[in-house]
Design a protein around this nucleic acid. Structure first.
Length: 359
DNA sequence: ATATCCCGCCAGGAG
DNA sequence: CTCCTGGCGGGATAT
């Protein structure tokens, strides 16, 4: 409700800042660093300042590419960008086996259909699975992601529009509703892939319509394969440099404080006093790189209550209750920043407690 | 107008 | 039952 309203009323609301693309970038930056092993969905949602639901989107897509691996309920393991190459290799093999190479871009359909195009979707239905929930898996974001990738890897198409991809991955169905839904999902996938620079959006010379080109492991990618491995070894980066580089790419306005909060988390194992001094330092940095006098108010929505956050309502109420005290936007945001960071630490500590030592 | 795609409802599943 | 997952598509934004 509050969020819905703010979208309509708040003149500072910016859809771009909420995009999956930006979220993915932040997510990646938050976890692609030394010492990251396990990822808790709650912590992720909290640290990134988004509702849990969005984390599922990111995580499902990343997992289908090998970057993450589900370890347990609410818990993922970070595999890193280095795992992408292998995952793609497997996907390509699977795709060829499933005749994804028979996709014909010109006809935007499958040629040489020895198998019904529909059966292509049924990735490895060899066994006698009690396909009860198979229906769900069939329509999952993860599978769609993999099939989308296979389309690029196996067929010889260089440019693919989401409409065509949807058509190809849709089992012959002419249902316009299914089509619309499929395209919606593909936009989601395309956004995270774009932020990872696995694909690139460009204008199709022929149709003049937007389409995507596969970039994959072609190097120069910020995270990309070879470079990705280096990123991990490179010590923690200097504040600021990364923000201006990546986030601004698709976001004209500056990044959200949520991202900075993530950076602030790195030394959470130290004492609170140390954290405070870190925060002090960051205050200057934020002022320089992120917060200007016209910093968009991304925090009010960031802190909006989510029913899934009920376990730590106190902190949210706290931050909400105090925000109005500050007239100055920057200060207000800063407060939110600290409040949220504190919440994250609190949550992680609690998690660590109940999860026990690493297994 | 068309292309995008955020947002959160709510059904299904796990514990 | 409670809480975790994540399909799905209404309708607001971006171009």
């Amino acid at each position: 409700m509050a969020s819905r309203d703010s979208r309509t009323k708040d003149p500072l609301y910016s859809r771009k800042e909420k995009s999956l693309s930006v979220l993915c970038t932040n997510f990646l930056r938050l976890y692609n660093r030394d010492g990251v092993e396990s990822i808790g969905l709650d912590a992720a949602a909290l640290q990134l300042g988004v509702e849990r639901r969005r984390i599922y989107d990111i995580v499902n897509i990343l997992e289908s590419i090998g970057v993450l691996r589900k370890k347990a309920k609410n818990q993922y393991t970070w595999k890193g960008f280095g795992a992408i190459r292998g995952a793609l290799k497997v996907l390509k093999e699977q795709g060829l086996k499933e005749e994804f190479d028979t996709y014909d871009a010109n006809v935007s359909n499958w040629k040489a259909c020895s198998l019904s195009s529909d059966s292509k979707m049924k990735w490895q239905e060899k066994c006698s699975e009690p396909d009860k929930s198979e229906h769900r898996r069939e329509k999952s974001l993860g599978l769609l992601t993999q099939n989308f990738v296979k389309l690029f890897l196996c067929s010889d198409v260089e440019l693919l529009s989401l409409d065509r991809a949807a058509l190809a991955l849709l089992g012959d169905s002419n249902d316009p509703t299914a089509m619309r839904t499929k395209v919606r999902r593909l936009y989601d996938i395309a956004n995270v892939f774009s932020s990872m620079e696995l694909i690139e959006k460009i204008r199709d010379p022929q149709s003049g319509k937007p389409a995507f080109r596969w970039i994959g492991m072609e190097r120069t990618s910020k995270y990309g394969s070879s470079a990705a491995l280096d990123v991990k070894s490179s010590k923690r980066r200097v504040f600021g440099t990364e923000i201006s580089n990546t986030v601004v790419k698709r976001c004209n306005v500056n990044s959200s404080i949520d991202l900075n909060m993530g950076k602030c988390l790195k030394d959470k194992s130290k004492s609170v006093k140390d954290d405070l001094s870190t925060a002090q330092h960051e205050k200057h940095v934020l002022k320089e790189f992120v917060f200007g006098p016209f910093t968009p108010n991304v925090t009010n929505s960031e802190a909006h209550l989510n029913k899934n956050h009920r376990r730590i309502p106190d902190w949210e109420n706290l931050s909400c209750a105090y925000q109005p005290q500050y007239r100055n936007q920057a200060i207000s945001d800063l407060f939110h920043h600290y409040a949220s960071a504190w919440k994250s630490w609190y949550v992680e500590a609690e998690e660590k407690q109940q999860t026990g030592p690493a297994s």
